[in-house]
């Protein structure tokens, strides 16, 4: 404070400052609350359940995986959430390095199917789907859309990742509800005693 100023002036300065601070406070609260209220819309910038795949890619991959481990009296790849395993791991997990392979491979797969059947894979009958997969597995499809990855290598990769998603720990995104463990009759969590300690206390 500058003691040279008259007392009334000092008060005026203080009052103005207080008013300004109050205004800033109110504005701050409003911006904070308002900003938070807008927050949910920020999160909805990218709708859909997948982190890496587009909805169309995911739809195709789900259909492929379901052929690899089909549902019968026990659930299949779709029921076990295999797509979520692959999606999560390709996006930012153990399968990161395969991201470009999936992008190119699924596109080549789509083209292969269109050329051979004039229809999307998901629209084919189970028999036709199996036929497409067998053709690609044996590398007998038209190689034109396939550069890197090669068709058979891509199929082997998807088979392996489907197995990982179906049989691995649910913590990685697949094997929902321990579906595969229940199918194999494996208890989880395992019932397993540790020791036979008896407390010395009464």
């Amino acid at each position: 404070m500058n003691p040279a100023l008259p007392a009334s002036h000092r008060t005026a300065v203080t009052r103005r400052s207080a008013l300004k601070l109050t205004m800033m406070g109110l504005a701050g609260t409003a911006v904070g609350a308002g900003g938070s209220a807008v927050f949910p819309w920020l999160a909805k910038g990218r709708p859909g359940p997948y982190r890496f795949f587009t909805d169309a890619e995911a739809e195709l991959l789900v259909a492929i995986c379901e052929q690899i481990i089909p549902r019968d009296d026990v659930g299949g790849a779709t029921d076990a959430g295999v797509i979520h395993y692959i999606d999560r791991q390709v996006a930012a997990g153990m399968l990161r390095e395969h991201a470009p392979t999936y992008r190119r491979g699924l596109e080549a797969f789509r083209l292969t199917c269109l050329a051979a059947h004039q229809a999307a894979f998901t629209e084919l009958s189970t028999e036709a789907k199996t036929e497409v997969l067998r053709t690609i597995e044996a590398a007998r499809a038209d190689p034109a859309p396939w550069g890197e990855p090669a068709q058979d290598a891509f199929f082997r990769l998807v088979v392996d990742h489907t197995m990982q998603g179906f049989y691995g720990s649910p913590r990685h995104g697949g094997n929902r509800g321990y579906l595969s463990y229940r199918m194999l009759g494996l208890d989880y969590p395992q019932v397993l005693g540790r020791n036979k300690f008896r407390s010395l206390e009464p």
Binding site: L21, M24, G25, L26, T29, A37
Partner: peptide, 18 residues
Amino acid sequence: LPAAVFLVTSAIGSFGYF
């Protein structure tokens, strides 16, 4: 000081909203 008040109160506003 006003800037600090703004920051603190916007944080309070935000957390208060939540």
